[in-house]
Each structure stands twice: as C-alpha cells, then as structure tokens.
Design a protein around this nucleic acid. Structure first.
Length: 682
DNA sequence: CAGTGAGCGAGCTTCCGCTTGACTT
C-alpha cells in the first residue's frame, strides 16, 4: 500500500519524502522525460521515412507531435515505471505551471498510467502545504498541456524551419529561434546604435564655493541653458535651445566666475523615501551577482545549485519574488534580531511578480527553512558564502523599513550665471543597513554632502574650472543586463536565461569582452537576414503575443490546431519557402559605400571593387573609414578569426555525430582555418 | 602496378524548456 509521488527535482523529493513519511515513495523525474526527436538517430525506424520526421511534427495530421524518450532519460523512466507498477496510486507532483503540467502528462504516458491521472500541486514546501496538497489532488489539465504542446511545436517549427534557411543563405550549422533570435536582435540593435553614434564634445563648468567648500555646476548664462549630454541626439547634434560653448567661451566663463561674488538664491529641501528591493528571482539574482560579485549568470546558477542541494536556499529557478508566510516571519525575525524592533514596518511587505509571462510556481530565492541561518553559521566559504550572504541580506532587507532621506538643491547666482549643487542626507538608513542595492545610481550621481547654507547668503568663489567632456555612446549589454532586457519582454524562462547566452556564443554570434557582450560580424549579418525576411522573429514582442495565445489555449478559448495552422500553414511555412537564399549585406554606418557580407562562409568587407576578409578581431563599432582602409589595403592583418569554437556542444547525442558536426562549424566561421590546416601538413 | 588526388554524393547541422550528474577540455 504505497503512493508514488513524482516531483521534478531530487532535492525536493528528499524533503517531501520526510514530510509525507511511510506509505509514500517520493521520486524525481529530473525534468522532462519525453520530447520531440532532436535529430535523425532519435527517430524510431518506422517513422524515419516520413517526410515530417525531421520536424517531429506531422503537420498534415493536425500537427501531431512525435514524442520519444531521449536516451539520457531511459533509466529514469524505467525505474519510475517499475515503482508505479508496485504502487497503489501515483500522484504527479511536478511544478504547478505549464511545463510542469506537460511533464505530468508525459509521465502518465511514458509510465503507462491507467485511469484518471491525479495531480498534486503546491507553491511552498512546508509540512502543512505538502500534507494538504497530498489530500487535495486534481485531474490533469489537458488544456494546459495543449498550451505547452503548442509552445513546444511553435519553437520546433521556428527553429528547425528557419535554421536551414540560414545554412543556405549564410553558412552551415547556424541557427535561429524564437528566443535566441530576439536576444541577438537586442544585441545587434544596440551595436548598430553605437556604430551610428557620433560623440559630441561639450564643456562642463563648475565652481567651488563656500567656507566649507562644495561644488556647483553651471546651468545657464544670461538665461541661456548650457548643453548637457541629454541635449544631443545620437548623430551628435544639439536638439534644443541649449548652448554648446566654444573653448573660448568656456575659458571666459571660468574667468568670469572667479572674480565675482556668489549669492545663494534658493535652497530647496525635499524629503524622499526608498523602498527595499523585492526578494530575488532568478533574473534579479543573476543581475546582482553580476554587479556585486562579478559572476556570470552561469556561474551564479552553478553556485546557487550547490546551495540548493546543500539545503541552504530555496529553489533557484523562479520568476516569483513572493515569500511564503513562514519566510516572511523568518525575515522579520532576522531583521529585528540584528537591527532592533523598529527595523521592520508593522505590516509585512508583500511582493508579487510584475514581469510578463510569470508562472509563479515557486517562491523567491531565499534562505531555506523557518529560521534563517546567519552566514557565519553556515560553514560555507568563498563564492558559495558570498552568494548565500547576498541572498540572506536581500531577503531580510525586503521586510525592513524604507530608507528616509532628504534631497537638498542649492541654486547659486554669480552675475549672469546660475549654478546648482545637489545634496543628499540620510535620516534613517532603514533597509540599507542590511543591503545596499548596487544598482542605486542615477539622478543622484552628483549628490554630495552639502554644508548648511541660507537663502540670500553670500559665498566666496574659491575656484572655477571647465572640463571638456564628450557624450557617451549607448552602453553595451552585459550578460546580466541582457537577461534583464529579455525578462522584461517576457522572452526566455528562469531555467534558460544562462543558456541563451551560451547558445549565441557557440554559434559565433557574439562574444564576451571585458564582461560586455559584443556581437560578431556573423551575428550582425544573421540579424540583417532575419530582419529582412523574418521580421516577426527578431521582434521581442513576438513572445508576448505568443503567450497571450497560449493563455487562450489553456482556457479553452482557442484550439491548438487552429493556432498552429494560422501560425505555420498560413504564415511561416510560406515565408520560409519564399525567402531568397542570398547572403545578407550590412552597410557600414558612417563609411559611405562600405559593406560587410559573407562569401562561402567567410565575412568579407567591400568598398567599390575592393574586397578583403574581415576578421572578427575588428570590433563592429570600431570600423571607421580609417580602419576600412587599413583592412582593404591589407595593413591590418586579417589575423586569426577569433570566433574560436568556444565550447563543445552540451554533450547530447553520440560521439559520432559530434565529430562530423564540428568541422562544418569551423568552416562556417572561418575559411582561414581549413586553409591553414591544409598548408601545415608537411 | 601502387599511390595520389580530384570529384562526387550522402549525411549532418538546427529549436525551447525542465532537470542533474557524467565527462572531457
């Protein structure tokens, strides 16, 4: 008389086993157990000859998917099937979201479960929640399964439909997909902005004033506002009325300020409050770990996985910032113990997901348990300790009081010149005693500690100076800031954020240089091609639209087949058939006539009748007229193509396929490599 | 006659999302 309970993660299984006790056997599925076949060797022999076998979806037969148990999951499925046969009933306790419902469905199929299949769902792992959930089971939600199946089919149709177009038009081995192509487009748009960007010079004039000296910035002269970076467009032109001083004017202004009295015209004080940031989700954890610990999203997830397995934190792949009641109490207790009874507000703070597409199957990432272990008591060290400490402080801070402060703006007048200084004082540090959000920069960049000055007061001008500055180009994305941008658009999921970046890197579309993501020429060209022929695919809003349709499928309002027919049969399939297999061409901004294109797998720069191979060592936004000339005249050696095959594949499939696949990629990225290898052989 | 090399054809590449270890680089 046992009940078999199947969850997704082994750590979770262990914990739930303890809460349910004897009579229950709790095991893990380790994620999905069936999927569309990835490549030919996964296709069962009797389907191998079907024209749709490569897609794994029989479009003619109402988009019927072909599911197989991948080799890596055969053992798990076998073991679960044996346990299921011995059990009196089976509860499918996979995550309470779309993917979890699908995993439950596939388990039912793969294990051959008969009769009505029961789902057990819960949003937090406490003894109460688990025991209640085991009693209140429900049937499988087939509409939700249909929504997941639609998502899976759409991704397959896009990925396996569009990628071969790129093999024909650009180079073999390349890829496109709903998520990766939106991510690539995000990177490329920014890089193109940088390539088009013209930096504008301007002067920033400051004066040091007062007995207790502070710095004020010149805002206007004779009522005419002085230009700041915000007054320039990306072409380097002034957009409004602001005055851009010449060198002489700036020097004159400095001299003018030095010899005149300074009057305090206005002093404005405005109180402000800052609320603590919400507890971590996967995305915000990756962003903070990147900024304060300098970890990549992948490193962060690897360390978090260790902490999770060790029982130090809750599940690390989540889109919800919500804390359970238990965790809220623990955070408030921890705050009061460390910072006193006044450090938490009377009512607990509640957090809910704001991002698109949130499924909220789990809590926020937070210290595990009903009381939080102090970092020093964990026995952790190094990066694990640092990440735990970050999670602990963020969680505790999320329940603490606001930061209370006052912003002071002092307006000064020196003759015809108006200057301003901004000060910031903290009256009550509130949550910042536990946690300083490193992203807290912005309008208060120039804030300083100001002495107490009064309106009408006269201050001595001690010094004045002019600083020559240039407007900065829009910044590149880091791995973490790209994750943030994708999450905001609802593209990708907590379990995939870190791997989106490795996909783009493995294809040679982008690389990480000093923590910045730099698209390659190949990446830019692929993006040009996709933008011209598959516009929807590079639009980050595409996923959001898909999610709306999936919700309608889940609620029974829209049928899976109707949705896929409209998307594929009446849409993408025709676009794929009609897309020309011609190499894309990128016009180099600011170098008239210069173009970058790809010929037999090699990136080539052209100007008029002159052409030369273009190395990936030439960073896109540094390709100026001078550099174009150097490349074309051969003075800049083409050098090794730096898009070295960064990593091996994720280890799927047999070694045989891997070996045959790699040389293609090498050729695709650099014709040089094959030539060199050939030349060296004796 | 043996060894070499050009030329040809077949097969492969590819998606997203859910989980851990296994296994090289």
């Amino acid at each position: 008389m046992t009940t078999l309970v199947i969850v997704e993660s082994p750590s979770k299984a262990k914990k739930i086993q303890a809460y349910l006790g004897t009579g229950y056997t709790v095991r893990a599925s380790l994620g999905h157990v069936r999927d569309l076949p990835a490549s030919r060797h996964e296709i069962p022999a009797r389907y191998a000859a079907e024209p749709w076998a490569r897609l794994g979806i029989d479009v003619q037969a109402g988009f019927r998917p072909l599911y197989v148990v991948p080799r890596s999951k055969a053992k798990v499925v076998r073991e679960l099937r044996e346990l299921a046969a011995k059990a009196t009933r089976v509860l499918l306790a996979t995550d309470p979201d779309r993917e979890g419902e699908a995993i439950a469905y596939h388990l039912a199929q793969a294990l051959g479960l008969k009769g009505d299949v029961q789902r057990m769902t819960f949003h937090e792992i406490t003894k109460d929640a688990i025991q209640t959930a085991a009693k209140r089971t429900r049937p499988l939600d087939y509409a939700l399964v249909g929504a997941q199946e639609s998502r899976r089919a759409l991704d397959r149709l896009v990925g396996y439909g569009v990628s071969p177009v790129l093999w024909g038009a650009v180079a073999p081995g390349l890829s496109a997909g709903r998520v990766q192509s939106a991510a690539l487009a995000t990177l490329c748009e920014r890089e193109l902005e940088r390539m088009r960007f013209v930096s504008a010079p301007y002067w920033r004039v400051t004066a040091t004033v007062g007995e207790e000296p502070f710095t004020a910035v010149a805002l206007s002269v004779n009522g005419r506002r002085l230009a700041t970076p915000r007054d320039f467009d990306h072409a380097g032109n002034v957009t409004g009325e602001a005055l851009v001083m010449t060198d002489e004017q700036a020097a004159k202004l400095v001299a003018y300020l030095k010899v005149r009295p300074c009057l305090v015209e206005r002093v404005e004080r405005a109180p402000f409050t800052t609320r603590p940031p919400a507890p971590f989700t996967t995305s915000t954890l990756q962003q903070e770990a990147s900024r304060s610990l300098r970890l990549s999203p992948k490193q962060t997830m690897d360390v978090a996985q260790k902490l999770y397995e060790g029982g130090f934190i809750t599940y690390m792949r989540t889109d919800s910032p919500a804390l359970s009641d238990e965790a809220t109490r623990a955070a408030r207790d921890a705050a009061e113990q460390a910072y006193g009874p006044g450090s938490v507000p009377a009512a607990p703070r509640l957090y809910a997901a704001k991002v698109k597409n949130a499924q909220e199957a789990h809590e926020a990432v937070r210290p595990a348990g009903r009381t939080f272990r102090a970092s020093a008591d964990t026995g952790l060290a190094g990066t694990e300790l640092a990440l735990y400490d970050l999670i602990l402080r963020r969680t505790v801070a999320s329940q603490m009081t606001d930061l209370l402060g006052e912003r002071t703006t002092v307006t000064l007048r020196v003759g015809a010149v108006v200057l301003q200084a901004v000060g910031r004082t903290v009256r009550d540090p509130g949550f910042t005693r536990a946690y300083q959000d490193t992203s807290e920069t912005g309008p208060d960049d120039d804030a300083q500690a100001l002495p107490d000055v009064r309106e009408g007061e006269s201050l001595p001008v001690r010094d004045a100076a002019a600083e020559h500055r240039r407007t900065p180009a829009p910044g590149r994305f880091t791995e973490a800031s790209l994750v943030r941008a994708l999450e905001k658009a609802g593209v990708g999921r907590p379990s995939t954020y870190a791997s989106i970046l490795s996909t783009i890197a493995e294809r040679g579309y982008a690389r990480v240089v000093k923590r910045q993501l730099v698209p390659t020429w190949l990446g830019l060209l692929v993006n040009v091609y996709l933008r011209e022929h598959f516009e929807r695919l590079v639009d980050v809003r595409f996923t959001a639209a898909m999610e709306e349709d999936l919700d309608r499928i889940a609620s029974g309002e829209l049928r899976r087949e109707a949705y896929l027919t409209r998307f594929w049969t009446e849409g993408l399939a025709g676009v794929i058939a009609g897309a020309p297999r011609l190499s894309p061409t990128l016009a180099v901004p600011r170098v008239p006539g210069a173009t970058v294109t790809v010929r037999s797998g090699e990136v080539v720069l052209a100007l008029g009748s002159r052409t030369a191979p273009l190395s990936e060592a030439v960073v896109p936004d540094e390709l100026t007229a001078d550099v174009v000339e150097e490349v074309l005249s051969g003075r800049l050696p083409p050098g090794p193509n730096t898009t070295a095959p960064s990593r091996r594949g994720s280890g799927r499939g047999s070694s045989g396929t891997r070996r045959s696949a790699r040389p293609h990629k090498g050729e695709a990225r650099s014709g040089k490599r094959t030539a060199r290898a050939g030349g060296r052989t004796r």
